[in-house]
Amino acid sequence: MLMQLTLGGLSQGMIYALIALSLTVVYRSTTVVNFGHGDFVMAGAFLSYVLVVLAGVAFLPAAVLAMIAMFVLGVLFNRGLIRPVRGGPHIGLALMCIAAGYVLRGIARMVWGREVLPMPAVFDMQPIFLGNLVITGDAVFIIGTVLVLLLILFGLLAMTDLGKMIQAVYQSPRGARLIGLNVDRFNDFSWGIGAALGALGGILVAPVSLLHPDLGASFLIKGFAAMTLGGFGSLGGAVLGGVLLGLAEQYAGAYLDSALIEITAYVVIVAVLFIRPQGLFGRKAVVKV
């Protein structure tokens, strides 16, 4: 049972990791937390649904197209709606993100409001039985895809100057501008990547969760919990936090009470912030006065 829970937790955790990672990418380079991210996740899933089921595109190209579309949407969102309110109160940005999420959800509701749609399984594979342990196609597919993606992403960060640029923009946008970085374009790029990664989370989860306009609602808080656990702003921490949260949910649900799955993320947030506010890898979160 422990092994099975671990596997289930890993495959859920990979989705959380992806969502936490996409939130962190945006936060690191723009210091904005996208409070509407759940709906970006949902929008990615619906885009791929439209392409696969309604336009007959194969899954893989559809997923890539949906991610590109969400990249563009992320860039447009930054340019059209985030930039104009940057001069206002900082938390106006949080509300702007929520408002954008509402618009996305509103569109989905308008078109598919009364439906719960099935998304065809991508990776139809007979489950493998190892004794009592069942390994399903979904789990293999989700874990595999996210691992490959993480390798590429962290490889890029390690081998290029991208990581340093992100760090520079995060620490001081003005300083980054001084050394010749185009911060505006950099922010566009981060929003695009964040939206595309979030969309991928949606695309991966949709065959499991089914499609409905409220699909993304629960993912935002899981992303937050994963980020908090790993250390806010740490890319590696976001991934580890996501995986740990996935595992914690399964263990709490099976060994304690299934009613606790719902609040595992919240308990993690409260506990981490009170006990070790910097998370596993983050910098100090508390302010000393």
């Binding site: 709606l81 509300l95 702007m96 929520i98 408002a99 954008a100 999420g101 509402y102 618009v103 996305l104 959800r105 509103g106 569109i107 509701r109 308008m110 409001g113």
Partner: peptide
């Protein structure tokens, strides 16, 4: 069915 859409647009 369109409340969310309008709400989002108006707030933005």
């Amino acid at each position: 069915g369109m409340e969310e859409l309008f709400f989002g647009l108006i707030v933005a």
